[in-house]
Every structure is written in C-alpha cells, then in structure tokens.
Amino acid sequence: MADTVPILRIEHMTKRYGDKEVLKDASLSINKGELKVLIGPSGGGKSTLLQCINFLIKPDRGRIWLDGTEIIRAKGKALYAYRQKVGMIFQDFNLFDHLTALHNVQIGLVRVKGMQAKAAKERATQELDRVGLKNHMHQYPAELSGGQKQRVSIARALAMDPEIMLLDEPTSALDPELISEVLDAIRTLRSSGMTMIMSTHQIGFAGEVADELIFLEKGSIVETGPPAKILYDAEYPRTRDFCSKITELYANSSS
C-alpha cells in the first residue's frame, strides 16, 4: 500500500506573469527512486515548474503532496522544513561565494538543521568525498572549476538528506569536457536510489537514465512516457518534431 503513494505529486500547477501563462495546469507524480526528466524547447517552462515545486517561485494555482501529505500554507517554518526535504541543483551552481566548499555544505546543516559544528563538518566532508572533492574542500568557489562547483552544490543539497532532488539543467553552464564528471555524479545518485526530477538538454543522457521523459512546451505538459517511446515513437507531432531535431543534433555533436 505504502509503495503506491507517490513520494511527490503536483496537480494543476499554474503560473502567469502578466498576461503570459508560463505554466499551464501542469500535473505530475513521481515514486520513490524514480528519475523523471523534463525536456522541451527553451522557454517552455522547465525552470519555472521546478522552482514552483519548492516555492522559489510562488505558483498562482496548484497543489503539492510530499509523502502523501499536502503542503498547504507554504509559509514560515513549514515552508523551510519542506524545502529541506527538497534538494535543488541550479544551472549556474549558486554556490555561496564567500564560503569554502566545506562551509558551503556545512552552513545548511548548522544554520538550518541546527547541527553541531563538529558533526556538521564530518557530514559535509563525507558528502564532498562522495562527489570526489575531499581534496578541494578548503577551496573557495572562485578557485573551483565549473564541474567541481556543480559537484559541491550536489553535495550541499545531499547533506540536507532530501527526499527528492530537483535538478535544473545541471550541466548547461559547463564546458563540454566537464559535463561527464557531473553526469557521473548524477548516475551514482540515481543508482543509490535518490528520487529526482531533472530538466536537461542532454537528450542522450536523459534517454539513458530516465524512467520517464516529460515533454514540456509553452508551459504545458504535452506528453509523458518512457524514453524509447517519447524519443522514437511519440504520439504528438510536436513531441516528435522536437525530439527528432534534438536527437539529430545530439547525434551530430556527440560523434
């Protein structure tokens, strides 16, 4: 019974800026250990959807359930507690520039979770070790490469023990030769059973790791399904269009 309750469920998520509806009635749910990938053209609403999920953007309408409990009145302590359970990785890392890698990971543990500094340091070191950055933990963001920064931000999110992770184009800001180290970290995360929703333009990677692809265009979820179906046998012409273009592109660029 417990297995059938999705870990996260969102319904009728809607967001508009002025007249422009950037998210239209988007619904999805994800089970524990699943990885779902949002794909779609630029400006389709992927970032908006992800940020609505943890209320970094306040949706105009829509409901969210985490572990079967609805998140109502997302304000104050309840909101902060919810956000701790939802880790987020940003396209441009958003590391805290004035803190070392170690302190970037530690600060949430100490200042949000209220952990003792010593225990937090231990935990942070462990997380940095997991993403292969133990040797860089005393360096500041400006002294790290893009790939290293993104791995620190993954460690920072993981240290909070999230139940689900949101990854918004985690590799888009990286030089091509640095992408694989971040993708590897995500693969490891996936095999450890972390639940994730990710947006990406790396369609090949998406096809390889995703349980399900979600095609989002002009703010609407057009089509959802397993990678093989979405990429090669989509129902809707718009999905087919997008996927054929982007797989072609991918085939050309990855050769």
């Binding site: 970094l56 104050g76 940003f90 441009d92 590391l95 805290f96 949430g108 200042r111 949000v112 999110a157």
Partner: peptide, 18 residues
C-alpha cells in the same frame, strides 16, 4: 551580487532573514 545565491539559500530551507 549574483542573485542566485539567495535562491540557493532559500532552497536549503533558510528563512529570508537568515
């Protein structure tokens, strides 16, 4: 300052004041 850092702090569960 790059404004993304404020978002990242919120995403960790920090209040705006913190």
């Amino acid at each position: 300052l790059p404004q993304g850092q404020l978002k990242a702090a919120r995403a960790l569960g920090m209040s705006d004041g913190k």
